[in-house]
Design a protein around this nucleic acid. Structure first.
Lengths: 354, 354
DNA sequence: TGTGGCGTTGCAACCGGTTGCAAATTTGCG
DNA sequence: CGCAAATTTGCAACCGGTTGCAACGCCACA
């Protein structure tokens, strides 16, 4: 390999980016007539450099279009500024909003998201290896359907990890940011009952998802406590349109309930489609209420009544938290719980007249 | 900093991931009783190692749970296996499919996607710096609305770049993979005219988007060549639900056309919502045809007639191409053009009886 | 047994940075 | 102006790997 950074470059114009070989510390040091340490320190917060050399270095650096190589730096600082963003559901449109927010927030903090798509991965260790090879500073697992072993694997591997949209508990094994799922189920049941629905069903996500269980519990608790209300459960194969669609198709073969609490907005939309195909009108024949309040819920073709999960807040909290843990890894994991609220739109019948 | 990899570890069980400090080459070398070079070569394809040492090394490595540090390696090999994935539209749900496919494909090839969200970035150089600091091997720009300066900036910075979903031309400045946008516009116009629509309008994306111009051109060409057909144009502010919604709202204030060719499925859906709110039925009162054939287009609540852009193929081609360019950067940029096809669903009136 | 050839091995330099330490310089103060 | 303290600087080692090169061991063949 030929390094020729010392020889004059051939380009007729000397703009920062018209160089053939990446500029290194050494190039800048030479040009500025100082040691490489001086250059390094100029680019290191809080290091000791006189204003004079700093100016010389900055001049040389900007003339050469130099910017430090984060990866080389990471070798000694042990910080890559890389954050693994692990997800396993690319079917639910809400995740586009989620990625949008995560990527912006991370970028704004000088971090870079390294996406890991676990859609068809079953080996926790493999995903750990994938991220360890890149020495990510930390990992944000954003999923409520990923088996616990996955997030556990990061803990065991000593990689700082935050589980976003996970299930908060009193003594979590890793940091968790999520919502009170049972409250969410309770709120749904209360809302449906208040609307006068009597035969109601929870059309949940995958039975194994951490979110499903809590929502089912809260829903059933409240429903069973109410006079004359019968509540049932049905799980969908995934948090996706197809999941909701097929779930509702199955319902349509039997006794259709008066209203459904869907485990996610996307399930509601799938259900809505199946109902439409079967000639049932929403909300006239069947009521629907979802969870999330994703962007699409407010589209007027959808116009979905739903329970808002404060995703922006959850995401912000996750990013802040991972930064904290990276800075000081010896923290006891904590749960942070956000609360849900009802968002009224057009898929439930109005409150009965008093 | 204290390195203590030589001292016995304290954990009661010796599983690969229950170590406190990341395992390095040296650890493995020591344990296997060989030099670090031997270890390195064991993990380097095509290097010269005897079967005996290879076995010793592999044993030690797996006992220690060692996997090489890609970033450290990249210093000498000049390959990080990192691919920048640059996008600026996180509002169009089709991008979730796009990300899903890209991330899977890249992972399958041993590459890692580094997402860069350019939603609110206006400085091309900044995005270049962001990616150069991480020495990405290459960049895939996936957008038809990003100003050309951005992808140009990568070219100038000598970073291998592929522009996916871009506008193919005869002499592209960077590699481009996309569709024949004017064919796409032509196909739309032909389809609408065949259905007997006479007053038709192109409800395009942002006027500055590379895709919009070609589609408009093909659309107008064909429409103007047809007897008794009048065609108009209206641009939407963005490829998003809101873009389409507001675009159609503006239309509704004037002369509503008989049918609309929407520059993207998501624009169709926005338009559809605005129409529904105005009490217009699709396709009875107004016809709609989109572009993309995104997942949602087949949802029965949407059921959108559309022109399919072969995204899976475009994405596969983009990944293959970036790998080629990374391997051999001195290639003349080429365009690769895919063709569109009509997908019939429920938002156009049927063919008139013959 | 001697010798040539080949596959394997380790040394040491290097990739692009950072950082502890001691030397060199500047500053403050009497 | 002299001297000690504070600040700045460069040297050199190191981060975790790779790789050119020369030395090594082994085997075949004469």
């Amino acid at each position: 390999m030929v390094r020729c950074s010392n020889e004059p470059r051939l380009s007729w114009r000397r703009t920062p980016f018209e160089t053939d070989v990446p500029i290194t510390l050494k190039d800048v040091a030479e040009k500025a007539g100082v040691s490489t340490s001086a250059v390094s320190r100029t680019f290191t917060e809080g290091a000791s450099v006189s204003t004079k050399t700093r100016r010389k270095v900055e001049k040389a650096a900007s003339e050469l279009g130099y910017s430090p190589n984060v990866l080389a730096r990471s070798l000694t600082t042990r910080r890559t500024q890389l954050i693994g963003l692990v997800a396993n559901n690319f079917e639910n449109p809400v995740f586009l909003e989620v990625f949008d927010r995560f990527t912006r927030l991370l970028q704004a903090r000088g971090l870079r998201p390294l996406i890991v798509n676990l859609s068809e991965e079953t080996e926790p260790d493999k995903s750990v290896t994938m991220l360890r090879q890149y020495s990510v500073d930390g990992v944000i697992v954003v999923s409520s359907t990923l088996p616990e072993d996955f997030v556990d694997a990061f803990r065991v591997a000593q990689i700082p990890v935050v589980h976003a949209v996970g299930r908060p508990t009193d003594t979590p094994r890793v940091d968790v940011i999520g919502v009170a799922n049972d409250d969410c189920g309770r709120l749904a049941a209360e809302t449906l009952i208040a609307r006068g629905y009597r035969r109601i069903t929870f059309l949940g996500g995958p039975e194994a998802a951490t979110s499903t269980e809590g929502r089912a519990r809260g829903f059933l608790e409240t429903a069973n406590a109410a006079e004359g209300v019968t509540a049932r459960l049905r799980y969908c194969a995934s948090y996706s349109y197809a999941g909701g669609y097929n779930g509702m198709r199955a319902e349509l073969e039997g006794d259709v309930a008066e209203a459904y609490f869907c485990g996610d907005d996307i399930i509601s939309i799938g259900a809505m489609s199946a109902l439409a195909e079967a000639g049932k009108r929403v909300p006239d024949d069947v009521g629907l209420i979802g969870v999330n309040d994703m962007e699409m819920a407010r589209w007027s073709v959808i116009d979905l009544t739903t329970i808002r999960q404060p995703l922006p807040e959850i995401i912000e909290a996750s990013v802040s938290r991972i930064i904290e843990i990276v800075r000081d890894p010896d923290q006891t994991p904590t749960s942070r719980t956000f609360h849900c609220e009802l968002v009224e739109r057009g898929t439930l019948r109005p409150l009965p007249d008093v």
